[in-house]
Design a protein around this nucleic acid. Structure first.
Lengths: 147, 147
DNA sequence: CCAATTTCAGGTGTACTGAAATAA
DNA sequence: CTTATTTCAGTATACCTGAAATTG
């Protein structure tokens, strides 16, 4: 349909999927006391240990202070540790603690099941196409959003 | 076990696109003083005038109180009005004011340009496929997430 | 001095829990 | 009585602006 003045756009569709995913993810994570955003940051740290908060922030398109807030919470909860970079005293390198790693493992299955449920009505080819398209969308917009 | 316990997932890809879109949208909307979420709610009201805050909340997979907060802000800013449903005194029907409508019109082009930029590297077929896939993902997860 | 990162101070927006009031 | 909706009170997190401090 191309007749709506503000027809449901792709931007809206992306936001809707993110909202419904987050509502389910929050339900899964509620017992652990971490939010979907905190969990996401932890999965990034798991894959790329030793990042600084500023690097994490750029990766997530938020201001460094916002990510610093989130990291501080995770540090207080004992899921993340902060160590000075011996080669650059300005940097505080982040990594998961054992508790942080355990938390990821504890929810691995439920999160995978959520993703499987989300894509239940798609063919494998459609899933691949969705992944590729999303990555292309991210890349196309991934410029510095003016700090 | 062997490779990535938490490899980049579709859930993560969706979140990444949402984050980068929001960072651009916030830049576009900053002069107006509305956030990306408030703007999104207004586009929904534009398409479906007369919704209640509770209906809007369900549409966005958030608690009614969260949406009530957002609506209150929009009302204070003069973008939304609230009128009692004459047929059901419990309900407060929401609709855009002229100012609210004008705000949507004022940003229509910039938002469309953002979407065009996002999909610049995709073929028209890929865009259609992305839209269909996202809608399927939303539908597959769109159950009541336990109020 | 300049650039990157962190930190501090302060503020608004988002979203939640829990509970109470209102009306069908 | 039950249910849907709104409203009130309080809290934690998310995200921002602006500025200062540290180090390279």
């Amino acid at each position: 349909m191309t007749s709506h003045p503000t027809s449901p756009s792709l931007l809206y569709a992306v936001k809707q999927v993110e909202l419904v995913v987050r509502s389910h993810l929050d339900q899964i994570l509620k017992p652990s006391g971490v939010t979907a955003l905190q969990y996401t940051a932890m999965t990034v740290l798991h894959r790329r240990s030793g990042l600084t908060a500023a690097q994490l922030a750029r990766n997530s398109f938020v201001k460094t202070q916002s990510m610093a807030d989130l990291v501080l919470t995770l540090e207080r909860q004992g899921y993340v540790t902060r160590e000075r970079d011996p080669e650059d005293g300005r940097r505080a390198l982040l990594s998961l603690t054992t508790a942080g790693h355990d938390l990821l493992v504890a929810h691995e299955k439920a999160v995978a099941a959520l993703e499987a449920r989300m894509t239940a009505d798609l063919t494998p080819d459609q899933v691949d196409g969705l992944r590729d398209a999303l990555n292309a969308c991210r890349s196309a917009l991934a410029t510095e959003p003016a700090h």
